[in-house]
Simulated scan of single mutants.
Amino acid sequence: MSALDWSRTQAVLFDLDGTLIDSAPDLGRAANNLRIARGLSELPLDSYRAMAGAGARGMLGIAFGLTPEDLQFPGLREEFFDSYERCIHDQTRVFDQIEELIARLEGSSLAWGVVTNKASRFTSLIAQRMKLFDRAAVIVSGDTTPHIKPHPAPLLEAVRHLGIAADGCIYVGDDLRDVQAGKAAGMGTVAALYGYLGQDAEATTWGADATINQPLELLNLLKLT
Results as ranks from 00 to 15, higher is better:
residue 2 S to G: 15
residue 3 A to V: 13
residue 5 D to K: 07
residue 6 W to F: 14
residue 7 S to A: 15
residue 7 S to F: 14
residue 10 Q to H: 11
residue 11 A to I: 02
residue 13 L to F: 08
residue 13 L to V: 14
residue 13 L to I: 12
residue 14 F to E: 05
residue 17 D to H: 04
residue 20 L to V: 14
residue 21 I to D: 03
residue 23 S to E: 03
residue 24 A to R: 02
residue 24 A to P: 04
residue 25 P to D: 08
residue 29 R to F: 07
residue 30 A to C: 11
residue 30 A to L: 08
residue 31 A to H: 06
residue 31 A to S: 08
residue 34 L to I: 13
residue 35 R to N: 08
residue 37 A to F: 02
residue 39 G to H: 02
residue 41 S to C: 08
residue 43 L to F: 09
residue 45 L to V: 08
residue 46 D to W: 03
residue 47 S to N: 12
residue 49 R to C: 03
residue 49 R to A: 09
residue 50 A to M: 01
residue 52 A to F: 08
residue 52 A to T: 15
residue 56 A to P: 07
residue 57 R to F: 02
residue 59 M to I: 04
residue 63 A to P: 04
residue 63 A to I: 13
residue 64 F to T: 05
residue 64 F to H: 03
residue 65 G to C: 10
residue 65 G to L: 10
residue 66 L to T: 12
residue 67 T to P: 06
residue 70 D to V: 09
residue 73 F to C: 02
residue 73 F to A: 03
residue 74 P to I: 07
residue 75 G to D: 10
residue 80 F to A: 05
residue 84 Y to R: 05
residue 84 Y to S: 06
residue 85 E to V: 08
residue 86 R to T: 14
residue 87 C to P: 05
residue 88 I to Y: 00
residue 89 H to S: 14
residue 90 D to H: 14
residue 90 D to G: 11
residue 91 Q to H: 15
residue 91 Q to I: 00
residue 92 T to R: 06
residue 92 T to N: 05
residue 92 T to D: 04
residue 93 R to Q: 14
residue 96 D to W: 00
residue 100 E to T: 15
residue 100 E to I: 13
residue 103 A to Q: 14
residue 108 S to E: 14
residue 109 S to N: 15
residue 109 S to Q: 15
residue 112 W to A: 02
residue 112 W to P: 01
residue 113 G to H: 08
residue 114 V to R: 06
residue 115 V to I: 14
residue 117 N to I: 05
residue 119 A to S: 14
residue 120 S to H: 06
residue 122 F to A: 06
residue 123 T to D: 05
residue 125 L to P: 01
residue 130 M to P: 00
residue 131 K to W: 13
residue 135 R to H: 12
residue 136 A to K: 04
residue 136 A to C: 12
residue 137 A to C: 01
residue 138 V to C: 09
residue 139 I to E: 07
residue 140 V to R: 03
residue 141 S to D: 12
residue 142 G to Y: 01
residue 143 D to V: 11
residue 144 T to G: 09
residue 144 T to D: 08
residue 146 P to N: 08
residue 146 P to V: 10
residue 147 H to W: 08
residue 149 K to G: 07
residue 150 P to V: 09
residue 151 H to I: 01
residue 151 H to Q: 06
residue 153 A to Y: 11
residue 155 L to Y: 01
residue 156 L to R: 11
residue 157 E to L: 02
residue 158 A to R: 04
residue 159 V to D: 00
residue 162 L to Y: 07
residue 165 A to N: 11
residue 166 A to F: 04
residue 167 D to R: 10
residue 169 C to P: 07
residue 169 C to L: 12
residue 169 C to M: 10
residue 170 I to Q: 05
residue 170 I to C: 15
residue 171 Y to C: 12
residue 172 V to D: 07
residue 172 V to C: 09
residue 181 A to M: 06
residue 182 G to W: 00
residue 184 A to V: 02
residue 186 G to E: 02
residue 187 M to F: 12
residue 189 T to F: 10
residue 194 Y to E: 08
residue 198 G to Q: 04
residue 200 D to Y: 08
residue 200 D to F: 11
residue 203 A to M: 01
residue 205 T to K: 13
residue 207 G to N: 12
residue 210 A to K: 00
residue 211 T to A: 09
residue 212 I to K: 01
residue 214 Q to R: 14
residue 216 L to C: 10
residue 218 L to K: 00
residue 219 L to E: 13
residue 221 L to T: 06
residue 222 L to G: 04
residue 223 K to C: 12
residue 224 L to K: 06
